[in-house]
Amino acid sequence: MAPLNFKDFLFGISTKSLCVLNTSIQNSKYIHLDLSENNTSLQKVDVSSSTRLETYITNHIKKHDALVAFGGYNEVRNIYKRSKYFNLGNDSERNIHIGMDLWSDVNSPVFVPLDATVHSFKNNTNFGDYGPAIILKHSINTIEFYTLYGHLSLASIENLKLNQVFKQGEPLGTLGDASVNGDYPPHLHFQIIKDIDNYEGDYPGVCNKADLDFYLKNCPDPNLLLKL
């Protein structure tokens, strides 16, 4: 039998949804959110303002009687234009999101979806960056890969240790607010990484068009695990 490719491996880890937010939130209470440049309703919102973007997202969640908004994988967005960290001009502009965002209330708990050890963590303080982020290392059937959790609270990394062991379902941290999370509405950036290279506490979550093929292969759709 031929070996599974990485995407098939990820999808086959569990037949059920793996949770990174509260397990009491049913999948029916998650609603997809489009933050792409093609969303005409978003074009009326000043997305450079975290407060106004939060109002838009909160209203979207309430309109659909949901608790969490999710989406954003392989999504071209305009919200990064406000930050020089992403917008260097020409073809180097990074505006394609390669993780999944889960938008919820500040201080919402974040949970470990699979047994893991702490690979690295850091407070990424560039404007528009992750703020506090944690990278976990997973090893299943001799296959190693990583998951990244961005836009956390400062408390999430205060007492963390390298190589610290987490079991599936254990609390990892909480969502930060705009003052610490890169100036965004509260949300979790969740990303799968096959090859972490030399990164520690950070890994690109937004790329440019020229590098997209590489990142789509190295960072498959997180919904392969979450199954929302």
Rank of each mutant, 00 (worst) to 15 (best):
P222D: 05
I157C: 11
P113C: 08
V68M: 03
Q191Y: 10
G169L: 05
L88F: 10
T51A: 13
P185F: 08
T125M: 01
S48V: 00
S153W: 04
G131Q: 04
I134Q: 05
Q26H: 09
P109Y: 12
L162Y: 14
S153P: 05
E200V: 03
T55C: 04
L18P: 01
L216S: 03
Y85H: 14
H138W: 08
S50V: 01
G201E: 05
S49P: 13
Y80C: 03
T23P: 06
L212S: 07
L67E: 15
A133H: 00
D211L: 14
K217I: 09
S48F: 10
T58S: 12
A66K: 07
K194D: 04
K122N: 13
I143Y: 01
G12I: 00
K137S: 11
S153L: 04
V76H: 04
L225Y: 08
V20R: 05
V110D: 00
N87V: 08
P186Q: 12
S156H: 02
L228E: 01
D8L: 12
V45G: 08
L226D: 01
E37D: 13
S48A: 15
S179D: 08
N124E: 12
H138M: 08
D213I: 10
P185A: 14
L172G: 01
E170H: 02
N78P: 02
I25W: 02
V112Q: 08
V118Q: 11
I193T: 06
E54G: 15
L172W: 01
H187F: 02
L226A: 02
L42A: 10
L160E: 06
P109D: 13
P186E: 14
V180I: 15
E200S: 12
L10R: 09
T174P: 01
P132S: 10
S179N: 13
P132I: 05
I140L: 14
N123F: 05
L226C: 10
T147M: 09
D213H: 12
K29F: 14
Y184L: 02
P220S: 11
E54C: 07
L33M: 11
E158G: 00
K81F: 06
F145S: 06
S120E: 06
F11N: 14
H151I: 03
L228V: 11
N126W: 03
F121Y: 13
L216V: 12
E158K: 15
E37F: 01
I61M: 07
E93D: 10
Y149K: 06
L35W: 05
G128M: 05
L114W: 04
